[in-house]
Design a binder for these strands. Structure first.
Length: 199
DNA sequence: GTTCTAGAAC
DNA sequence: GTTCTAGAAC
């Protein structure tokens, strides 16, 4: 009998794949949206995140049909390095001179097609609304690109936190990413973080 | 991933 | 009474 198929088919269930119109396919549509598209090269696309969680929030996606970080293997190492280089070049541009950035992957992404988040660390955006939004960029749910690449080089695969750990990370009480303040809810957090970039 | 909204929290 | 969070969405 045949072995189990790829992790992709496990994620999507044994019976059906996600239809193209499903929300989890939204990034593929975003590439074709002139409002979001920025540029491409031979291997990747750069787009704006449709719901930016900071002043600047971009996504770098491979043209190759890689569903998510869960299906990345050593064979993709040079591609991941390229994606990181593209991200570094992007943040070096003049319009980003005043910002610092984080570059990385979500441990448990919701949207299909592997995507590298390139996000300024102000975290000041109307689209940032929930605890899950906050935690997904400010704790270990956010896997830094350099760490993912190191992992792949050292271990031959990416060590992803188990589902239960991801769940815990999402439920982590709110904490400022720049100091020890622990706001009691999202509105307070959003009021607090702006104090870090007033000068 | 977002939207909507019931009911918890205040 | 209003604000806020969290779970359903066929």
């Amino acid at each position: 009998m045949s072995k189990r198929k790829s992790s992709d088919s496990l994620e999507n269930g044994p019976k059906k794949n996600k239809p193209n119109g499903h929300w989890s396919m939204g990034l593929l549509a975003a590439i074709d949206d002139p409002k979001l598209f920025i540029e491409s090269d031979d291997l990747i696309h750069i787009i704006r995140d449709k719901y930016p969680k900071a002043k600047f929030h971009y996504l770098v996606l491979p043209k190759e049909d890689i569903t998510s970080i869960k299906s990345v293997t050593s064979t993709h190492l040079s591609l991941l390095k390229h994606m990181e280089q593209v991200a570094l070049e992007l943040i070096s541009r003049d319009k980003h001179k005043e910002s610092t950035f984080k570059i990385g992957y979500h441990a448990e992404p919701s949207m299909s097609r592997l995507h590298l988040h390139v996000i300024s660390d102000d975290m000041n955006s109307e689209s940032l609304k929930t605890k899950k939004h906050w935690n997904s960029f400010t704790n270990d749910f956010f896997l830094k690109s350099e760490d993912v690449i190191k992992d792949l080089e050292k271990n031959g695969k990416i060590i992803l936190p188990p589902r239960e750990v991801c769940k815990k990370l999402m439920e982590t009480p709110l904490k400022c990413h720049k100091c020890d303040v622990k706001p009691k809810n999202m509105p307070e957090l959003k009021k607090h973080i702006v104090t870090h970039f007033n000068r």
